[in-house]
């Protein structure tokens, strides 16, 4: 390589280092650039996300035809059971309201929906579990706001806000930690992602008796996720002898591969 050529490549490398440092140091610069890039490419990615979800639905229906009749019967029974529970809870809610009015306490909603947003992008390197939504700071979003699915299952939290877009870290991300509790017996734990890419609850003492199928909800102890959001159901309980706590594997209620719309809540 000639001296001039060497100098040229050295200048390019130095210039690159300066640009990278500037992009990461100057506040708002990478945010603004990211906003521009997503504005250009997100319509394309959203189109293919929607197309992919539709194709996935067709194939999953074809593969599950045999089980549909069985599932139908099970779901009908569950609906009947839930309808009677709703009726019971409506009565409890009415009594609660009457009592609160009686002692002059204002009724506060558990979850306030700030915005509805569409999923317009995902991680393309497969390094992290995160999604991109089409709402940002101009819609009132800030970092660490909780995000739920349209069926009110826990999705994750906002980790980066741009003007028109926001990045959501999913609860299946290896960096995600969610304070949770078992709905039935109120045992508290922390939901994380294991090395085997499965969600599990940590710090549940070995003496606690848990049942597969029990619901897991947010406890609100992390001051990020409001209390009472459904995370998933207990799928498997691991009682390995060499562990201080039992490992509870859970099945999330949200199908993260088919997310199209979400709510940002507080």
């Amino acid at each position: 390589m000639s001296k001039t050529s060497r100098k040229k490549y050295l200048l390019i490398v130095l210039g690159l280092i300066v640009i990278i440092v500037l992009l990461n140091i100057v506040p708002g610069l990478s945010n603004g650039l990211g906003n521009f890039v997503f504005k250009v490419f997100s319509p394309i990615q959203k189109f293919f996300i929607d197309l992919g979800n539709r194709v996935y639905s067709v194939f999953s229906i074809l593969f599950s035809i045999r089980d549909l009749a069985k599932e139908n019967i099970a779901l009908r029974e569950e609906v009947l059971m839930l309808e009677s529970k709703v009726a019971e809870l409506s009565e409890v809610k009415r009594e609660n309201r009457v009592l609160r009015e009686g002692i002059d306490l204002s009724e506060k909603e558990n979850l306030l929906i700030i915005q509805k947003a569409s999923v317009v992008g995902k991680d393309i390197q497969g390094l992290d579990d995160w999604i991109l939504i089409d709402k940002g700071s101009c819609s009132g979003l800030v970092k660490d706001m909780a995000v739920v699915s349209v069926e009110m299952g826990l999705v994750g939290r906002i980790i980066e806000v741009m003007e028109n877009f926001s990045k959501i870290m999913l609860i299946t991300n290896k960096e995600s930690i969610v304070a949770a509790l078992v709905e039935k017996n109120r045992v508290e734990g922390v939901v994380k992602e294991s090395e085997k890419s499965r969600l599990f609850v940590d710090f549940i003492p070995r003496g606690e008796v848990l049942v597969e199928g029990d619901n897991l909800i947010t406890s609100g102890m992390d001051n990020i996720f409001p209390k009472g959001i459904l995370i998933g159901k207990i799928e498997e309980i691991d009682f390995s002898q060499n562990q201080l706590f039992q490992k509870i594997y859970i099945n999330p209620v949200v199908n993260f591969s088919k997310l199209e719309e979400v709510f940002i809540v507080e």
């Binding site: 690159l16 640009i19 990278i20 992009l23 990461n24 990478s30 650039l33 990211g34 890039v37 997503f38 992008g121 991680d123 393309i124 390197q125 390094l127 992290d128 995160w130 980790i159 990045k167 870290m169």
Partner: peptide, 9 residues
Amino acid sequence: DFYSNGFLG
């Protein structure tokens, strides 16, 4: 980098 979750660069 824009479609990842690390630092730019």
